[in-house]
Each structure stands twice: as C-alpha cells, then as structure tokens.
Amino acid sequence: MSKHDPEKTRPKLGVLKFASCDGCQLSILNLEDDLLALGRALDIAYFPEASSSVNPGPYDLVLVEGSITTAEDAHRIRSVREQAKVLVTIGACATAGGIQALRNWDDIEAFKRAVYPRPDYIQSLSTSTPISEHIHVDFELWGCPIDKGQLLRVLTDLLAGVQPRLPADSVCLECKRRGNVCVLVAKGMPCLGPVTRAGCGAICPSMGRDCYGCFGPSEGARKGPGLPPNTTSLAQHFYGELQLIPVEVLRRFRGINGYAAPFKEESESWDKKT
C-alpha cells in the first residue's frame, strides 16, 4: 500500500441522526450532480441511511441531524462529540429542537397518552432540545430542511480549512432581490420573513404565501450584527394592523423553530396576553 494513496488521506465524514424526519440527510443525497464527486473528495465513513459500511471514528467532520429527546440520545451525543474533530448541526431539529420542541410548552405525559395506548412503554424526555444545549457545536446550519447549496458551500469551506460564513440577515433581502410583491404589506399575510434568516431563497413569498420561519431567527436587522431580530415590532404589527388575536400571534412564532431563543421569547410574551 502506498503512503500517498489519496483514498487514505481523504477527510473522514460521519452523518448521523437523532429525532428528526430524515429530510436534511436526504438533502445530502439530493446533491445529485455533486454526490459522486463528494464521495470521491470525502471518505464517507459512517452514514447509515445511505451505506451499510460502518467505519469507526474518529471523524474529521460529523454532520448531525435531529434533536435530543431521550436520555439515551443525551448520552450518545457526548460520545459523538468525542469522535468528531469538527461537528456541524444540519437543520432546525439539531439547531433549535425542531417542531417536536412544541412539547416543551406542554405536558409530555399527556402527549404520550394522546398517541399511545400504553404510554408507560414510551421512553422520552419532557423536552426536545438542540444539540448545542448538550455539547459544543462548531457550526450550525439552519433550515427545515437545510438548503443543499448552503450545505455544499459549508462542506467546501471546511474542506479548504476556511471558517464557513453564511448570510444571517433576513428573508426580506432575498425576497426583494427576487422582485416579489411583499405579501405582508400588499396582501396582509402574517409573514415571518422580516425576522427569519435568509438561505431558502424566499421560497414562500415567491409561491404566493407568507414565510413561516423555517430557517430560524435572523440576526442583525435594526438591533445590530449578531443580535436578535426585532420580533416584537413584527408581532405588534400582526396584532395591531393585521388584527391577529394574541393566540394567533403566539402560534406564528411557536412553529418549526419555536424553541430558538428570539422566537421562544416572543411567543412566551404573548402567552401572558392570551
């Protein structure tokens, strides 16, 4: 065996999941035009959804899908971190707890009873939490699902040894660039675009509907770089101008990324008003 065998020096990639829908992992496989090149550039050492070949760590890069919802998974993510040089979360579940974090405002025992005839068989934590609540995360890729173009960019940056940077400003900027008519102003739809992170390409307004925040909270607008978006101003507009009742404002922010701090705080402030 040659010392310079490129097969042996390729960075080792691991992809794994916790509680999730598998859509972000599918986004990797949806890189149809680049998937085989990716398979050549990286040693796909652990990716059970796509391969039966399972190679032990450590891994140069680990992509984590899904949120932590069981005691076993809270333990497992720690051992994953020990095996990973760089760990990147992919998607709303891993980055913010996902839609299943709606349980965090409710009674888990009641949830078990609503779905299962024998709730006592079910092992589940009372919360769904993002990976960063459990371990150090090197980079978080937002989106439900992630945008495969953003994923490719992050992978390329990491392979080149560059710290990935993605836009954190709001969907509005992408929406304006696409030349859409504003659905919030012109159609009175409760669009979350002004406080939602760019990256999807303003899909919802382009399809004639309001953004529902699946890329998580944006940063920087009005309050400054790295700071949360002005959810309060938007919520007040929904309430005052669009005539939403408080519980409707609450539901708007308590969705796919409802457990992300700025959205969480906003929805909780409306909890008191309902």
């Binding site: 916790f18 509680a19 919802t69 839609i99 299943q100 349980r103 409710d106 009641a110 609503a114 779905v115």
Partner: peptide, 11 residues
Amino acid sequence: EPPRFFEAFLQ
C-alpha cells in the same frame, strides 16, 4: 426512533 408526538401537538 424516538417518538415526536405529532398527533398530540397538532391539537
């Protein structure tokens, strides 16, 4: 695969 309780939080 951990349960996510869709039928519950749809309520």
